[in-house]
Design a protein around this nucleic acid. Structure first.
Length: 237
DNA sequence: GATGTCAAAGGGGCAC
DNA sequence: GTGCCCCTTTGACATC
């Protein structure tokens, strides 16, 4: 069992390199065929060759390893087309570990493939072109979903931090009011506030008629908005 | 049996 | 019109 896993791992590593090669070809705008010949990495090759050379007891393993080279589908007693021709009912296809690993490796390099690449990959994996296409679509959807979850978590933390900050500022404001204005009833404070304005540059309270109320209020809003924005950016949330 | 996962199907939108 | 992608839904299978 361990031997099998070693072969599979080696196979995946080899594929990673070949995928990069394929992309290079694509960049040259001259894609004849995806070069996915499943050339094993040196370690994988070594193990396959060893397996082939050993005595009869290990001959079975050698056959398995050689089987991996062409990635034959375990259900491939029948043609791949038979996967979906079960009296009209959909038969769930479970991709083999090797197929999944290969697809994953390629996906890591390129999340989308052109038709030629898909066809080549489908042939190599003994799948239909459509299956490879669908797999990549589903894989992109899973990636997007995961990213959405991450983003959501991030925004949730942002929200929590801002709520905390809001609470803190409210408390601070209350304390300052208590210190400066004293235990005046709230409605009086509010009525005073309507007559006070705030200097747009120094943000200090001005006496009545010392500034334009409308402009001051909009400046306060703008300043608060900018402060909030800065705190988000600088705070790393 | 409820739930989760994932391959597959189908439809809409878009670019060519 | 065709081909591709995205999104949603469906259905088979696995896990608990």
């Amino acid at each position: 069992m361990e031997d099998d896993e070693a072969c599979i791992t080696s196979l995946s590593l080899g594929l990673g390199i070949m995928g990069g090669h394929a992309q290079k070809k694509e960049n040259e705008q001259k894609v004849h065929c995806l070069d996915l010949s499943f050339e094993l990495c040196p370690k994988g090759k070594e193990e396959v060759e060893e397996a082939i050379d050993v005595d009869q007891q290990q001959q079975q393993h050698a056959n398995k390893a050689k089987g991996l080279l062409c990635l034959k589908h375990p259900n491939d007693e029948t043609s791949p087309d038979s996967n979906n021709s079960n009296n009209g009912s959909r038969k769930k296809l479970k991709l083999t570990k090797e197929q999944s690993a290969t697809l994953e490796d390629i996906f890591k390099l390129h999340s989308t493939l052109n038709p030629a690449q898909k066809q080549a990959l489908a042939e190599q994996l003994n799948l239909k072109h459509r299956q490879v296409e669908v797999w990549f679509q589903n894989r992109r959807a899973r990636t997007k979903l995961k990213q959405t979850e991450v983003d959501c978590e991030f925004l949730k933390k942002c929200c929590e931090k801002l709520t905390d900050e809001n609470q803190r500022l409210k408390k601070e404001l209350q304390e300052l009011r208590a210190q400066k204005i004293g235990p005046t009833p709230l409605y009086i404070q509010l009525s005073k506030a309507t007559t006070l304005t705030i200097c747009s540059s120094c943000e200090k309270l001005l006496k009545p008629n010392e500034g334009n109320n409308k402009g001051a209020i909009s400046n306060v809003i703008r300043n608060s908005s900018n402060k909030l924005k800065n705190s988000i950016e600088l705070g790393g949330i």
